[in-house]
């Protein structure tokens, strides 16, 4: 396959296949009286069951885009539709789960109570809640830690617990803001495998923000590359590795190296542009 053919064709998915639809999104922050344009005219869509990574250097507005989709930030202009319905700032969209950059586990709740939190809010009966939490603990390799408090866990364990707190309510759309950014390389690759197994089984629609190209290649079906500030979409790449993927093995393939080199070049340009003079 030629390198040029890797560029994803800029054709939209048919409307009924679009889970996330972003149109003409702009965001300008007011900081100490100065207007800072963080995102300029971003449009893309994510198909049902697709895993898309938003990749870019820091300050490229990719997290801002994600947070607008998550209703945490209000767009300056533009439209965001999830399953065809516009999202409302400050109000959680049903069926959408969010995983934070740093884990926001409640320190006053045990790991099991943290994971069961969403079920508790929804009024799920205690017995059912317990079963589902136990299944999640098992899935995340946290058996035996249910009664521990988050402060007793390692960074990787905490992030797995945080992931399970989001997944326990079975969201159809998963928004992830550099969820593994604070972890060391090996823990990160472990987490990639955990996430890949879950995604292969549940087939959620995932929008994953990262500045780590290796991470984006390992996980995503498609990578949307953001430019340096103001954030715009620069390019989009299909990642055509077969599934199921193995987070360790995939990095050894020549194809990985080929894609890495290609995208790295484009990312590097933005990285240099984003540097302060």
């Amino acid at each position: 396959m030629s390198v040029q053919a890797l560029h994803a064709p800029e054709v939209d998915a048919p409307p009924d296949a679009r889970r996330i639809d972003v149109r003409g999104l702009c965001k300008t922050f007011q900081l100490a009286g100065t207007a800072i344009e963080a995102v300029r005219d971003v449009s893309f869509n994510v198909r049902r069951g697709e895993f898309v990574a938003l990749l870019g250097p820091s300050g490229s507005g990719k997290s801002t885009v994600l947070n607008m989709i998550a209703t945490l930030l209000k767009p300056t202009s533009g439209q965001i539709l999830i399953d065809g319905v516009p999202v409302i700032h400050g109000r959680a969209t049903p069926n959408v789960g969010y995983v934070f950059q740093r884990d926001t586990l409640f320190p006053w709740r045990t790991v099991a109570d943290n994971i069961g939190y969403g079920l508790e809010l929804a009024g799920v009966p205690v017995a059912e809640r317990k079963d589902r939490v136990n299944a999640c603990l098992k899935q995340a390799g946290l058996e035996g830690f249910g009664n521990a408090y988050p402060s007793a866990l390692s960074g990787g364990m905490r992030q797995r617990a945080a992931l399970m707190r989001t997944l326990v309510v079975e969201p159809q759309v998963l928004l992830m803001d550099e969820p593994f950014g604070a972890l060391d390389t090996h823990t990160k690759i472990d987490m990639h495998d955990v996430l890949l197994r879950i995604w292969e089984r549940e087939q959620q629609t995932v929008l994953f923000v990262t500045h780590d190209l290796g991470e984006a290649l390992t996980l995503a079906d498609r990578i949307i590359l953001f430019s340096a500030r103001p954030g715009r979409i620069k390019e989009s790449f299909e990642v055509d590795f077969a599934r199921p993927r193995n987070a360790v093995k995939i990095r050894e393939t020549p194809r990985y190296a080929e894609l890495f080199q290609l995208i790295w070049h484009s990312l590097g340009e933005e990285f240099i542009k984003g540097r302060k003079p």
């Binding site: 945490l72 959680a92 789960g97 409640f106 809010l121 929804a122």
Partner: peptide
Amino acid sequence: GFINAARLLGASEWQITRTVVIP
């Protein structure tokens, strides 16, 4: 971050007060 986490998991204002603000 705690408040946003609770809100995105579907907590109402009162649930946020009870389960996040007070603890």
